[in-house]
Nucleic acid binder design. Structure first.
Lengths: 245, 245
DNA sequence: CCAGAATGATGATTTGGGTTAGTGTCCCTT
DNA sequence: AAGGGACACTAACCCAAATCATCATTCTGG
């Protein structure tokens, strides 16, 4: 499809700036990650498979990807979304074998960064390593929030919560305009992320439209009533830790 | 009730040894964490509350605790169990405000370790910091596995999976004898961890007994047919990363 | 030592969400 | 231009798990 504008490491820089004040030198250091070749992959392809031992760190530049796990009989659970500016597998530093897969949900562009190169960048900017660790902790907090959602929230509450979360995350990387953002994934993906059947996800979406919470068409999601949506979702933004120190 | 034997840092050492070969010097370094006073707390009390900013690292020595999140209307989801040898909040190094609570499920004993003291110990043993990071990654992998369970597995599969996971984890810290281990928590806790109602959890437990998968009484869980249990749970141990490098 | 919680166990009934089985529409691809 | 996927959407029916209610123990705190 039409190549999206290549935002480079800009989304990442914006994201990390939500956690702590970064300066120009940090910005420059980050952009050093852009030197490698950019990789592209189409939707419905895997970036990495469970069991593999990736040797590179991947930085998503455009498009959406996800972490997912599947069962032998085909059931699949998306356990997290990767948005532009996210690293897919920072844990490659510690663990060797992936216990989950990483899939492209849309066509994606990403950098494959060699560990040495990555090391070099963070070694020179202690602030960056702190911000990156912070982001990893936030990812872990998002997982906990999803567990709460899937374990306790109803379908409507779950979906409402996810939309608010995506809104905040996309806003942090500059991908929301007002209360509208692009939601380039399918209803099937949303169902897999929320532990719901595609049929029921569609029903829930209709309900949200009927209730005047959102508008969704042509992959554009518009939050019509943020306050109400947050109330339905019982949304508390503390877990995103978007508060600079 | 009767105070359990104080195992000190032994469970932690055993646990970390599952990830990488540790030597006597590592063992000695870890035991330096035992110098502080030991804290005790009864079941149904919180060790830390969401919103707090803990200033110490807590190492659980005996008893079970959990990480949980709750909703304004009282619904509660346990997002992870802490077993003896687990650190409750290593992330205190990075984030400031807790986005979840930590509760004692049984009476517990734990050390409260000052960050400086902790730092001192790991600074002298690079192997330890690596093993601890590894364990954090494994915790994160367990969260993903739970997400898969709650999102996709049936009640029976979920519970079977949890029991196998607990068996492996308890075995790693020396708390399983053969295929039997102490399960000191209530059915209510199991329900909250699995996103099920207490009633249905009880029924599922009955079913597991009927099927000859487990025996459970007086807080002792005996896995009668591990192979079958793993099959029912579609259990794949890769996410525990119990493979030394 | 007693009253009131917890805790485990079951039956009866209800419901949120799953399953099955379609429809129509837009792409791609060849 | 035709055939085949994806994808969004819907209706009818079904079922796994929630709710509500009750009862017997066993803790446990005052």
């Amino acid at each position: 499809m039409a190549t999206m504008t290549d935002a480079g490491t800009e989304p990442l820089f914006r994201l990390l700036s939500r956690y702590m004040a970064l300066d120009h030198a940090d910005r420059v250091a980050l952009s050093a990650l852009e030197t490698g070749p950019i990789r592209r992959l189409n939707a419905r392809n895997d970036i990495a498979r469970e069991g593999e031992n990736p040797s590179v760190v991947r930085l998503l530049v455009s498009g959406w990807a996800c972490r997912y796990k599947d069962l032998p009989d085909g059931r699949r659970q998306i356990v997290g979304f990767f948005l532009p500016g996210d690293f897919c597998d920072l844990n490659v530093y510690i663990l060797q074998e992936l216990d989950h897969s990483i899939g492209a949900l849309t066509s994606v562009q990403f950098y494959e960064i060699q560990p040495e190169q990555f090391q070099e960048v963070i070694d020179q900017r202690p602030n960056l390593i702190r911000a990156l660790l912070w982001h990893e902790m936030v990812s872990s907090g998002i997982q906990r929030q999803w567990l709460l959602s899937i374990g306790q929230r109803s379908a409507l509450e779950r979906l409402a919560h996810l939309f608010v979360e995506l809104y905040y995350r996309l806003q942090a990387v500059g991908l929301a305009t007002g209360l509208t953002f692009e939601l380039p994934i399918t209803q099937n993906h949303l169902a897999e992320a929320n532990g719901l059947s595609p049929v029921h996800l569609n029903r829930t979406l209709q309900e949200m439209r009927r209730e005047g919470l959102i508008e969704l068409s042509d992959r554009q999601l518009k939050i019509v009533d943020l306050k109400h949506l947050k109330k339905v979702a019982m949304f508390n933004s503390n877990y995103l830790h978007f508060n600079r120190t």
